[in-house]
Simulated assay, not measured.
Amino acid sequence: MKRLAVAAATALLALFYRICRLFPVKRQVVCISRQSNDAPIDFLLLKEGLARKEPPYRTVILADKLESPLRYLPVMAKQVFFIATSRAVVVDSYCIVVSLLGSRIKAPVVQIWHALGNMKKFGYATLDTPEGHSSETARLMHMHEGYDAVAVSSLNFRDDLAAGFNVDPSIVFEAPLPRVDLLRDPAFRSRQREAFLREHPEMAGKKTIVYCPTFRKTPPPNEEKAMQNLLSAVDFDEFNFVFLPHPVSRQTIDDPRVITADRSGIDPLFAADYVITDYSTVMYEAGLLGVPVFLYAYDWGTYHEKRSFNIDLARDVPTLFTDDPSVLVKAIERDAFEPERYQCFVRNNITLPTHGTCTNHLCRYILKLVQQTDC
């Protein structure tokens, strides 16, 4: 039954795509995300970069979370129209329309993914595991099919990314996400930090810890206890504690001393003096900001059995890796962190372009694909 439904949906999408192809193809790029309902910063930066090209390119950003299949149908129709009438398509996550249409799409499709750097196995590398999808679902939905190019932050991990997307490594190219430009801009960081502190004047006079856990498909049984233990270890007379949940996580921390940040607002990472994470690529973003990072691996005993990694967290990440919150907080209080070793680790995962910004580097690559394709 599912197979027939997907086949019927694919046929309808293909028919609608052919109708939309009758409209003129414009000098525009469409960027599609289902990570949130807000335009991702990487897409906004791409939009600015493409607008500065000569001649300029228009950018259409379609950001819609899949919260209800029926309500998503008009979203998919809109995606088809702009895919059919654009010179290039950029996605930062799995896009149903792109994968089902596949090779029917005339414009080049570029997958830039939403996570910075290399970390966990995903996609085809995690099929039939507790944290992954089933092989049947992947085949049925043509998961991650239709890409002409895939961006990676460092070619050191080309094969890992190719395995996750099930693509030929030859289409994987080196291009860190545009947001890297902001993370490396001291003036931008200073403005963002000041703006976040203006929003939260109660944070004045204390150092700030930002806690950014990764997404877990199934919350671990010790999650609530682990959060209680962590908060009990923090001296709230000395530190602010900001909780930055993963975009698709439902985890909450119900404690009046904790500031829960909204990802649609100012990124609290810019106001962080210390970052606590676990198995999240936030560790690279914090590294680019020059903020000390500590890993709270309270469920490592079960998580690493559910999810495989491309790196050995305990060995390869040069910082504290512990399930003991008191040890973690004491390390923060002592500033027990080696910035030089950590920066070396970040450079191995994120290769900056030799000339210009990350945004311009990605824009140039997209437009080169456009020139090579007869839409």
Rank of each mutant, 00 (worst) to 15 (best):
M1L: 14
M1T: 14
V6D: 02
A8F: 07
L12Q: 00
L13R: 07
A14K: 06
R18E: 13
R18D: 11
I19M: 11
F23S: 15
R27Q: 15
Q28K: 15
I32R: 02
D38H: 15
D38M: 15
D38C: 15
P40K: 14
L44P: 09
L44W: 11
G49W: 12
L50Q: 01
R52T: 11
K53I: 09
E54G: 03
P55V: 00
P56Y: 05
R58S: 07
V60L: 03
V60Y: 00
A63P: 01
P74A: 10
V75F: 08
V75I: 15
V75R: 07
M76Y: 07
V90L: 10
V90F: 08
L101F: 03
L101S: 02
L101G: 04
S103Q: 14
I105D: 01
A107K: 05
P108F: 10
Q111A: 13
H114N: 14
K120Q: 14
L140A: 07
L140R: 03
H142T: 06
M143V: 04
H144M: 08
A149G: 05
A151P: 02
A151Q: 08
S153D: 08
S154L: 10
L155V: 05
L155I: 10
N156D: 09
D160H: 11
G164W: 07
P169G: 08
P176K: 15
R179N: 14
R179D: 13
L182I: 15
R191A: 15
L197K: 08
L197W: 11
R198T: 14
T208V: 05
T208D: 06
V210C: 09
Y211D: 09
C212R: 00
F215C: 06
P221S: 10
L230K: 04
F236A: 05
E238Q: 03
F241Y: 04
V242E: 00
F243Y: 11
S249G: 09
T252E: 04
T252S: 05
I253R: 01
I253G: 02
I253K: 01
I259G: 04
A261W: 10
S264H: 11
D267W: 00
L269R: 06
Y274M: 00
I276E: 07
V282T: 11
Y284L: 04
E285K: 00
E285Q: 07
E285W: 01
A297C: 13
T302V: 12
S308Y: 12
D316K: 03
V329Y: 00
K330V: 01
I332A: 07
E340I: 09
Y342E: 09
G356E: 12
T357I: 10
T357E: 08
C358R: 02
T359R: 12
N360V: 12
L362K: 09
R364Y: 05
I366S: 04
D374Y: 01
